[in-house]
Design a binder for these strands. Structure first.
Length: 113
RNA sequence: UGAGCCAGCCAAGCGAUCGCGGGCACAGGGCGGCGACGCCGUGCCUGAGGAAAGUCCGAACAGCACAGGGCAGGGUGCCGGGUAACGCCCGGCGGGGGCGACCCCAGGGAAAGUGCCACAGAAAGGAUACCACCGCGAUCGGCUGUCCGCCGGCCGCGGCAAGGGUGAAAUGGUGCGGUAAGAGCGCACCGGCGGUCAGGCGACUGGCCGGCCAGGCAAACCCCACCCGCUGCAAGGCCAAAUAGGGGAGGGAUGACGUGGCCCGCUGAACCUCCCGGGUUGGCCGCAAGAGGCGGCAGGCGACUGCCGUCCCAGAGAGAUGAUCGCUCUCGACAGAAUUCGGCUUACAGGUUGGCUCACGAA
RNA sequence: GCGGGUGUCGCCUAGUGGUAGGGCCUCUGCCUUCCAAGCAGAUCGUGUGGGUUCGAUUCCCAUCACCCGCU
């Protein structure tokens, strides 16, 4: 998945948090910053406040599935950090997918194929 | 039929499509490389738990002496066994609870010493005598006066600890005898203690004898017995890359470092520590065949052990299980491996197997 | 992953085995024309479950929550 490389290291996280913009709804917070690489790099954050390990793993898997399904529509060079919020624990799948896509569209990262 | 006790097992299932981690294969395809090969791709196989959890114990493994002596510190604590080891497990003993099946118990030492036992109470420990009880003496009063005698008050000397009262706890309990009043003072039974004999590997149990001398708390300090070196896979090892190994202060064969809270001992080097200024933030091994699972036979009451057969069962590195659809049922709990095992503890919808107890009914 | 610490009224805190104390807050009363301040009084607590002890905030065990280090 060349178009979905991971983001690593606290320096890269700090760069996105400080230099980037953010959008949010009840399911997640999206931080985004142009990276000039031509590829989309992304990372998911599920804090301990969200729940126990089973809950955090399930949320991360569902978020990752959203990115996988829509990776063809993600264009340009962006660094993304998606942070899960409380609603993501009990939200049904259509709500999660719809919420994340809405955030990506709002940020201008999402292009119709 | 109802109520209950103990032990064990399972942890929704089946199918389709798209995706993820790991392993193996690839003759053909794409990219890189002279090449071995790597990446992509394709095919097949495989992919969380009974607690993976809490991190409360024990070990393996690794480094430092194949971890040694002492102090300090910590842990364990009825007996016997199991185990690599344990604070775990099994079988007993003693105590407590339940009609019972059965369950629970940190359960050594208080005649080594220190300390504590608030309030109440006379007294909280080798202590004491408040009220009371009894004897003797003196004195006062009453019985009309005196002697004698009797009754009562007060004082002194002495006896005693049965009764009252306090407390969680006061030198054993009940009964009879005994006495001035009383007391294990004597006797019987019970309880405790000591001795002895018998049984048992032992904890302990039972019999006999002695005799009443010994309060509680050690999850208070402590004593005794046994155990414990420290650090932890981010241990430790190998390879590659990078800068410049630069400047200052202190220590070092009078022994740096290892080394831990300390001393000794051991090891054994030309380094080490701090400050200033810089570089790196990769890859591989450890890393999964093990005190392993399952089945059978044998030994043992059992924990467990021995032998034989058989199986290979996650291995990531920002961290693999998700999405959609169809069907079935009782509509699904607690919950996600990170070096690996053995335990303990805690969380938990339900389903299921075996054994046992009590109550009622029938035969 | 490894190691350490803390839980006491609504908030901040004392308390090393013997009645849980103080300040702020809240309520009531007094005072004041009224409010504030002041004075007097009251309510409210040992995170949870066991154990040791006559008696536990204190000692022991388990558990829950939170916090802080190392990497």
């Amino acid at each position: 998945m060349k178009e979905l490389e991971p983001l690593r290291g606290s320096e890269e996280f700090q760069r996105v948090f400080k230099g980037g913009r953010s959008l949010a709804n009840r399911v997640a917070v999206l931080y985004f910053l142009p990276n000039g690489v031509g590829k989309v790099r992304s990372a998911l954050v599920t804090s301990r406040k969200l729940g126990k390990a089973v809950v955090r793993n399930r949320v991360r898997r569902r978020f990752r599935e959203v990115l996988r399904r829509h990776r063809a529509a993600l264009g340009g060079g962006w660094d993304l950090v998606i942070m899960a919020r409380r609603r993501s624990r009990e939200a049904p799948w259509p709500e999660i997918e719809g919420s994340l896509v809405a955030l990506l569209k709002q940020a201008g990262v999402y292009h119709q194929p």
